[in-house]
Design a protein around this nucleic acid. Structure first.
Length: 294
DNA sequence: TGAATTGTTATCGT
DNA sequence: AACGATAACAATTC
């Protein structure tokens, strides 16, 4: 599950290898993953030079010369593997689950690997269409507490599915959403329109912190392979069901929110404020310890 | 064997 | 109509 930090790590790892290179040949081994079609993408990128490699949301974007953009989305299990000419000569071995290859003008080859085949390779003439479907980039300067408030306060949704929505904030996935909510001490079922400004500020800080930390540790490496990822050693709640909260010792609880595995500390992340209010018009702001749905 | 896994999209409901 | 919630889907692993 590559999320923003994993995609950023992979992009940085390959940036110097790819920038300035010209794509000589593209080959797809699983055409369904290629858009608009393997043949058309192949025609579009052949002979074009990669001006710049960058990340937008969970996309790795190659800006091409003279025009166009090559986009790669790793989804669940996608990877990039780069072999230089010497490595290609030295072994006939390929990485596992190769779904597509890009041959470059320095004799190197970029492999797109993806066990589950959910990843996407896409060519677009202009980036605008992609851009219009994406929310704010959480590590840009424009992502301020006010920007976060503007993005979520007008919506009336539970925090977790809202944070996972790429049209709202781009780049968070299941792991970093759980981690950010824990650090902000917010329950994933809390409603986005009823946060105080202090809570907005806490959530903003938590999102930035957890993403920066993830990048600093080269991402999370659990059951998939990313280069030297160490963020798994710094996770507070994700995948720690039953283990003690590092802050208070309470056992981490696993639950399901919007069909997603979700992890919380029931002590640190107080219950949502009466999400199922019946009639008690506005009085009891505290009715704390009631059970979430069940 | 089937449950779990994810982001996106299509569909249902309010 | 607009929005939110939910189901379906892509395929594989254990």
């Amino acid at each position: 599950m590559p999320e923003l930090p994993e995609v950023e790590t992979l992009m940085r790892l390959n940036r110097d290898r790819l920038e300035g290179r010209t794509i000589l040949r593209f080959e797809s081994r699983w055409k369904r993953q290629v858009s608009p079609s393997a043949a058309r993408l192949s025609r579009a990128v052949r002979g074009r030079r990669i001006l710049r490699l960058r990340r937008r949301a969970k996309w790795i974007v190659a800006d091409l010369v003279p025009a166009g953009h090559l986009l790669i989305h790793l989804r669940m299990s996608g990877r990039l593997d780069w072999y230089d000419r010497r490595m290609l000569d030295a072994s006939t071995m390929e990485p596992s689950h190769v779904r597509a290859t890009f041959d470059l003008d320095d004799g190197s080859r970029l492999y797109f690997c993806d066990a589950r085949k959910f990843g996407r390779i896409q060519y677009v003439d202009t980036f605008a269409k992609i851009e219009s479907d994406l929310g704010i980039e959480p590590l840009e300067r424009t992502f301020t507490p006010a920007a976060l408030a503007a993005a979520i306060c007008r919506r009336k949704r539970a925090l977790k599915p809202l944070l996972l929505d790429q049209r709202v904030i781009a780049g968070l996935g299941n792991i970093y959403t759980d981690e950010a909510l824990f650090r902000a001490r917010l329950h994933p079922l809390r409603k986005s329109h009823q946060l105080g400004s202090d809570e907005i500020a806490a959530l903003h800080a938590a999102i930035v912190e957890v993403l920066r930390l993830g990048i600093k540790h080269n991402g999370t490496m659990i059951d998939w392979i990313y280069p030297e990822g160490r963020m798994q050693n710094h996770l507070q709640v994700y995948g720690r069901t039953g283990e003690p909260c590092r802050a208070c010792g309470t056992a981490i609880v696993g639950l399901r929110v919007g069909q997603r595995g979700t992890h919380i500390c029931p002590q640190c992340q107080s219950d949502p404020v009466k999400p199922f209010r019946r009639r008690s018009s506005r009085g009891s702001k505290r009715a704390r310890n009631r059970q979430p749905v069940a």
